[in-house]
C-alpha cells in the first residue's frame, strides 16, 4: 500500500508568521474563559473514574472478619507474581469460613495493576481501589501486608476517598504503615 507523505510548503503570508501568531493568541483568549482542565493538586485531589485500578484492599464481611479464605486463586492468576499467601485454619468456629490467610503480602513494586486478582477471587475478597498516591521512600513500605490491606478497606469502604478529601475530610494514606 502506498503511503501518502504530506509536506508543508509555507505560502507567501505564512512566511511572515503573523497569521500563525494571531491564531495561537486567539486560542489562548478562548481558553481563558473556559473551565480549567488543570487542578491544583495536591490541594484538590484528582478523582479517578469508576473502575480505576489502584491500591488493593482486602474486604471484610458483615461481622468484620476478613473475607479472604486464602484459596490462592489471585496468587495463581497474578502474572507478576507479586502476591504471597500462607493459609492457615481460621481461629473462629462460629460458622465463618474455616480457612483464612496467615500471611497475605502484595509487593506493590511488582504489581502491574491488571486486576486479574480481583477477577479470579471467588469470594470478592480482594479489590482494587481508587487510591493512586501511596508513593514512599522505601521499598519495604511498598510491600503491603494483610493488616495494611484491611486498613485500606477501612479507609475506602465509606466512599471514594478523594471525593471525601476534596470535601474537606481528613483521611491519611500512611504508606509506611500499610
Amino acid at each position: 500500500m502506498a503511503t501518502v507523505v504530506r509536506t508543508y510548503e509555507p505560502g507567501y503570508w505564512d512566511k511572515f508568521y503573523l497569521p500563525a501568531i494571531a491564531r495561537g493568541l486567539l486560542l489562548t483568549l478562548v481558553r481563558m474563559f473556559r473551565r480549567k482542565d488543570t487542578i491544583p493538586y495536591p490541594d484538590i485531589k484528582y478523582v479517578p473514574a469508576d473502575g480505576y485500578r489502584g491500591l488493593h484492599r482486602l474486604n471484610k464481611d458483615e461481622d468484620g472478619r476478613i473475607k479472604c479464605v486464602a484459596c490462592e486463586m489471585c496468587q495463581t492468576a497474578c502474572p507478576a507474581h507479586c502476591i504471597d499467601i500462607v493459609p492457615e485454619p481460621a481461629p473462629w468456629d462460629d460458622g465463618g469460613e474455616e480457612r483464612h490467610p496467615a500471611k497475605f503480602e502484595i509487593d506493590l513494586l511488582k504489581c502491574i495493576f491488571c486486576g486479574f486478582c480481583e477477577l479470579a477471587c471467588p469470594k470478592d475478597a480482594i479489590e482494587l481501589t481508587e487510591i493512586y498516591d501511596y508513593a514512599s521512600f522505601s521499598r519495604d513500605d511498598l510491600i503491603i501486608d494483610r493488616e495494611g490491606l484491611l486498613k485500606v478497606y477501612d479507609i475506602t469502604s465509606m466512599g471514594n476517598i478523594y471525593e471525601r478529601q476534596n470535601r474537606g475530610e481528613s483521611i491519611q494514606i500512611d504508606t509506611g504503615n500499610l
Binding site: 486464602a70 490462592e72 495463581t76 493459609p87 492457615e88 485454619p89 480457612r99
Partner: peptide, 9 residues
C-alpha cells in the same frame, strides 16, 4: 496437610 498449600503449587 489441611490448609497448608494448594495442590497445584
Amino acid at each position: 496437610y489441611m490448609h497448608t498449600t494448594r495442590v497445584w503449587h
